[in-house]
Design a protein around this nucleic acid. Structure first.
Ligand SMILES: [Zn+2]
Ligand SMILES: [Zn+2]
Ligand SMILES: [Zn+2]
Ligand SMILES: [Zn+2]
Lengths: 183, 183
DNA sequence: CGCGCAATCGTTATATTATAACGCTTGCAG
DNA sequence: CTGCAAGCGTTATAATATAACGATTGCGCG
């Protein structure tokens, strides 16, 4: 199941080139090393601010996750690090993932048992919860603000005398670059 | 994890007896053999109406799922059927589950990799999608209508030029009978 | 009725995701 | 510089899910 490969050729089509880089689905071909470095830098900052240790392994795991806009499974991370010479046990990957989740720099996609890098700044600081949009074709995951929706879900739950603690909203479908009914 | 067994005797306690049976969280002690039979009967009807085969194994698997208001994992079903003398391979359980999901008589709880019986009639006929409320203490799962919320999620997705296909909303928390901060 | 096809199921094996247990190392507060 | 908690290595195993292939069964149709 090696999905989400970015076709290494993929010369950016003109129409795509203008995609707003602040869209939840920026053109991944525009993911430069520099942008990745910025993302890592932001994570570093989050760890520092919260007095957590952004260890080498955590950095490596985060870098693998952030290297793609798609979601990625723990064992895929394991394999990619392995190719780069970092051989660790699954448990180590999961421990790093747990720390990254706690820090809020990655999210877990429940419907795929996979993880992706958070590219927003507005909800690591809580109070602005996102909903996840996962592309069935290319695997890309985008986040859009869903605070209003989460509020309504909370109300619906309370209407059933249910006391909500954690809410999940995930959407599977097709991202802008993979179109709709396209084969 | 043998939770939520319905004590076959279960004399209804007075204080609990007044819970509205149409609530998403009816008192499971009131789950009589008769009610279970009704639930199975409803599933039978759905299969008949849609020209699908409600085979013996599917009935058995459905009965196990419907025997509790909690969600239940595939291997837990496997074990319970085993205790009753029906020894099958995991794949057979999963095949039955797939058929039950297709028929809409059970749902999958993505956040727990588990399944629960649908006890509503209004969304097996589509157009009235439910959100799932899963209790962290007793495991009970309730459904409440969420069509409005799903509509908003669809709009949020389209706002990001994302074409939604499948959506889910799950809430983890505490059901009315397990209270809030209660130890 | 009996043929033939598709759906179902059995059987075996394996893939994928995740955690338990225990001890060593390391960073750092005091 | 010592002692403790966090992090990590190592080994083993649990929990969830699917692949492959052949046998059986239900059932429409000639
Ligand atoms: Zn995020
Ligand atoms: Zn896509
Ligand atoms: Zn339902
Ligand atoms: Zn409960």
């Amino acid at each position: 199941m090696s999905d989400t490969q970015v076709p290494p050729n993929a010369a950016p089509v003109k129409a795509e080139a203008k995609a707003d880089p602040r869209s939840p689905f920026p053109n991944p071909n525009q993911q430069t090393a520099k942008k990745l470095a910025q993302t890592v830098e932001r994570a570093t900052q989050v760890f520092a601010d919260r007095g957590l240790r952004f260890t080498k392994l955590r950095q490596q795991v985060f870098a693998e996750i952030a290297a793609t806009h798609a979601s990625i499974g723990a064992y895929e991370i394991l394999a990619r690090l392995g190719e780069k010479g970092t051989r660790v046990a699954p448990i180590s990957i999961y421990r790093a993932i747990d720390a990254l989740l706690d820090a809020g720099v990655i999210h877990r996609l429940e419907s795929k048992n996979a993880f992706f890098a958070c590219r927003r700044t507005d909800h690591t600081v809580k109070g602005k919860r996102p909903i996840f949009l996962s592309c069935e074709k290319c695997g890309a995951v985008g986040e859009v603000d869903g605070q209003h929706i989460f509020d309504l879900i909370g109300e619906a739950a309370k209407g059933a005398k249910f006391n909500p603690r954690v809410k999940f909203v995930e959407v599977s479908g097709f991202c802008p670059r993979c179109a709709t009914g396209e084969t």
